[in-house]
Amino acid sequence: MTNRLNWDERFSVGHEVLDAQHKHFFALCNAMADSLAEEAAQERFDQLFAELMDKAREHFAAEEALLADCGYPELDDQRSEQEEFAFLADEIATTENFDRSELQTFLALWWAGHVMGAARNYPPWLAGRD
């Protein structure tokens, strides 16, 4: 079973770049779900997974810099979330440990949680920062 993600404007953090990145993670998770039904599923899934991991590093660096610049008081929590994701994705949630369907489900749920948490916590700090 795969999990598909649908963007809702309630997920917006109010910053154009971060919102675009979050939307892209939803799209990547959905593309990973789509790839599971393709003949060349493993190769396509692995390409999308690699892209997601590359984009995650970029996203977390941009998010951290922006939040630090605006004095976000929970920056340590945001850094812990980054570290948790990196550890899980590098060490545990891999194609060696899980089948691709399980991995897609994990990633979709993780990114949905990240985006919803960001939408709940970041907007007051990011207002007018585009």
Rank of each mutant, 00 (worst) to 15 (best):
N3T: 14
N3I: 15
R4Y: 15
L5Q: 05
L5K: 01
E9I: 06
R10A: 14
F11L: 13
G14C: 07
G14K: 05
G14Q: 04
G14T: 06
H15T: 03
E16F: 06
E16I: 05
V17K: 11
V17H: 10
L18T: 04
L18M: 14
D19C: 05
D19Q: 04
A20W: 03
Q21E: 14
H22L: 05
K23Q: 15
K23M: 13
H24C: 05
H24G: 02
F25N: 00
F25W: 06
F26Q: 02
A27C: 02
L28R: 01
C29F: 01
N30I: 07
A31Q: 15
M32P: 03
A33E: 02
D34N: 11
S35C: 11
S35M: 05
S35D: 07
L36W: 04
L36H: 09
A40W: 02
A41Q: 08
A41T: 01
Q42G: 14
E43I: 09
F45S: 06
F45D: 06
D46K: 12
Q47R: 13
L48F: 05
L48Y: 03
F49R: 09
F49G: 00
A50V: 08
A50Y: 00
D54E: 15
A56M: 10
R57S: 10
R57E: 12
H59Y: 07
H59G: 00
F60Y: 13
F60L: 03
A61I: 09
A61P: 00
E63N: 08
A65L: 08
L67N: 04
A68R: 14
A68H: 05
A68S: 14
D69H: 11
D69L: 08
G71F: 01
G71K: 05
P73L: 04
E74G: 13
L75C: 07
Q78D: 09
R79D: 00
R79G: 01
R79L: 14
S80K: 14
S80R: 15
E81W: 04
E81V: 13
Q82C: 10
Q82V: 01
E83M: 06
E84M: 09
E84S: 10
E84Y: 06
F85T: 01
A86L: 13
F87L: 07
F87D: 10
L88D: 12
D90M: 09
I92T: 12
I92A: 10
A93F: 12
A93E: 12
T94S: 10
T94H: 05
T95C: 08
T95Y: 02
T95L: 10
E96Y: 05
E96D: 15
E96I: 07
N97T: 10
F98K: 11
E102Y: 07
E102H: 11
L103M: 08
Q104K: 03
Q104A: 14
F106L: 14
L107E: 00
L107Q: 04
A108S: 15
L109F: 10
L109P: 00
W110E: 04
G113M: 08
H114C: 04
V115Y: 01
V115A: 12
M116Y: 03
M116E: 14
G117Y: 01
G117L: 10
P124M: 09
W125L: 12
L126K: 02
A127R: 15
A127Q: 14
G128C: 08
